[in-house]
Amino acid sequence: MLQVILYVDPGSGSFLFQLLIGGFLAVVFFFKLAKNRIVHFFKKLFSKKNNNNEAES
């Protein structure tokens, strides 16, 4: 919806820009969190295995 107004809040460009990029940022953040969780899971898994091996030896 376009509407011409006389005075513009100086933050309006920033406001609209955030609405525009919001979806993209959410997707990037979602994948980053997912990646971190996967990395954390494997790190935990391997550290458990290493601990078990050390305990056995």
């Binding site: 919806m1 376009l2 509407q3 011409v4 107004i5 513009v8 309006s12 460009g13 406001f15 609209l16």
Partner: peptide, 9 residues
Amino acid sequence: NQTTTKAKP
């Protein structure tokens, strides 16, 4: 957005 003004969507 300083020249083409849009209302808050």
